[in-house]
Structure formats: structure tokens, C-alpha cells
Design a protein around this nucleic acid. Structure first.
Ligand SMILES: [Mn+2]
Ligand SMILES: [Mn+2]
Ligand SMILES: [Zn+2]
Ligand SMILES: [Zn+2]
Lengths: 140, 140
DNA sequence: ACTGAAATTAGACACAGTCCAGATTATGAA
DNA sequence: TTCATAATCTGGACTGTGTCTAATTTCAGT
């Protein structure tokens, strides 16, 4: 994921494969996320996309991020009480979260094993398991 | 935790042991959390505390919850992008989170084992590990 | 071109949470 | 008691994220 060089043309195909009509704004938003491969807040996406000159509204950024989520093109990471992070990496993985710096780093799910999870009650089904390792820069 | 019958007098002692001056409002807020042993949002705490007649302001509820957090009398659970939940259970544990109902259920940390977590970089120290099992009521 | 559907937009709005300056309450010395 | 002082609480303004809406723009198909 980190190594792929996403072109806008390649992203148009990715969007199509996820049943998303590839408009200008959607391509730019996808490009912001996938070309960097970073966890970004909606605010950051808005800033990146409007950095040069273009013109994408806040409403469209939110609409598009929620559309991408619904279509499972990206996932959300909930670690900060004040904002959601959007993650272009949809391969199952977990996170280090540095509560001092706000830095968010992936942990491959294949590396770790979780055992002993209690049985789910009848009629309940697992959606996913999130492991968040909260870390601090040493020195309290 | 679930079985203890907290009286307000007992809570005064708990507050004192955590270096918290036990005021009326703080006792009521602690009572809301500990007598129920449930995960509550600030909004829910405000509603409970003001249910009968008393008068505790929103500012005080937030100030007090943050004070309780700082003194490690309670912990916060971040699973919902729109609000924080406050948890009177400070024994290490994890959570089931029903994304349909919003229900939050504890999982004893002693029951589960997580292995294979990568080494932390130099100068970084773990603050805690949160496991969130997101579940849905069956039928999509 | 013309038309309807899809997408985008500005700005109003909702709501969690913070901040502040003034009022209230607790503490405790005189 | 009385008074001074510090601690706490309060209403209400404010901030930041995220949603909603009605009007406009863009797009696809004819
Ligand atoms: Mn996908
Ligand atoms: Mn404690
Ligand atoms: Zn990630
Ligand atoms: Zn809990």
C-alpha cells in the first residue's frame, strides 16, 4: 500500500470498482488519501484538496468521505475524542496512537494474535476488532 | 464493581482517597457513575444528576469528569465519533461495542491475551491497550 | 442543444465540549 | 460569630466537528 504510486487515472479505476462515480472532487479526495497513505482528518483532507487553487466545499469533503466509507474504499479510526481519522488502508490492521503527538501508526493484524475473547451472545455478529495501543513520548 | 452498593458516604471516602475535595456536585456525579456501574456520556451524567431537582451546570459536569479522569478515578472510552463515554471501572478491561444500539459491555482484560505486538521505538512508552470488538445485531 | 438525475455548494444549523468573568460556597483565623 | 480568602460553581458566550438544506452546477443520455 505504502509503495504503490497512485496516479489519478489509477484511482478512477479504483473508484469505479467500488461503484463510485469518479467526479473531479472525488478523485482529488481519493488522491489526497491514497497518494500519501496517511491517516487524515476531514479537516486535513479539505486543506490538502484546496491547497493549490481548486475548490472543493466542506460539505463535499464530508459527503465523499462518508461515501467512501459506505463503499468500503476507506475505513475510519476512532481514537481521538475530537475528530475522526480516515484510513486508506482497508487491510485488517491495528494502531499505535501517540497521545502526545497525535501520530497514528499501523500495526499489521497478521503480526498479532488475540485469544480468549468471550463468546458472542446469540444474534450478535462481529463487525471488526480494533486494537489501539496508546503510547506517549517518554518522560512524564 | 458491579455488586458494590455505593453510598454517598462511601463515595466521599473514595473521592478523598483520590485527592478530590468532595463537594455536593462531585458526590452526585460520582454517585451517578458508580451506583450504576455503567458507561455514561457527559450528557447522560448531566441528565441523571439533574433528574429530580438539584442544579448542576454543564460546565461543572465537564470540569468534574475531567478532574475524575486526571485523578484516575474513572477512565474514558472512545468508540463513538460523536461523544466520549466515561467508565467507572478502572480495572484494565476491554469492550464490546454494539454499533447498532450503542451498547457498551466490558470484557475482563484477564480473560484475553494479545501477543505479537511490535516493539516500541526508543523513547516511547505504552500508556494502555484498548481492544474494541465492534458488533452488530445480526441481520444486515 | 435539451432534459432529468446526480453531484456540488454556501451557509445555516446541531451539538459536544471549552472558556470566562462574576456569583456562591467553604475554610479557618481572629 | 465575623471577616477574608481560596476553591468551586455558574450562565452563557464561544469553538470546532460534522450535518442538513435549498439552490446551483455538472453530467449522461437523447
Ligand atoms: Mn475495498
Ligand atoms: Mn483509582
Ligand atoms: Zn491505519
Ligand atoms: Zn468499561
Amino acid at each position: 500500500m505504502r509503495s504503490i504510486h497512485y496516479t489519478r487515472d489509477a484511482l478512477v479505476e479504483v473508484l469505479r470498482r467500488h461503484d463510485i462515480n469518479p467526479t473531479h472532487q472525488r478523485i482529488e479526495i481519493a488522491y489526497a488519501l491514497f497518494s500519501r497513505g496517511e491517516h487524515l482528518s476531514a479537516d486535513q483532507v479539505l486543506a490538502i484538496v484546496n491547497d493549490r487553487h481548486s475548490q472543493t466545499s466542506k460539505a463535499t469533503v464530508y459527503n465523499t468521505l462518508n461515501l467512501f466509507l459506505r463503499k468500503k474504499l476507506i475505513r475510519e479510526v476512532i481514537v481521538d475524542p475530537s475528530k475522526v481519522f480516515y484510513d486508506p488502508n482497508t487491510i485488517p490492521h491495528h494502531h499505535f496512537y501517540n497521545v502526545d503527538t497525535g501520530e497514528l501508526v499501523d500495526i499489521d493484524a497478521a503480526e498479532i494474535t488475540i485469544s480468549g475473547l468471550p463468546q458472542l451472545p446469540e444474534g450478535i455478529v462481529t463487525e471488526g476488532v480494533d486494537v489501539i495501543v496508546r503510547v506517549r513520548s517518554k518522560a512524564e
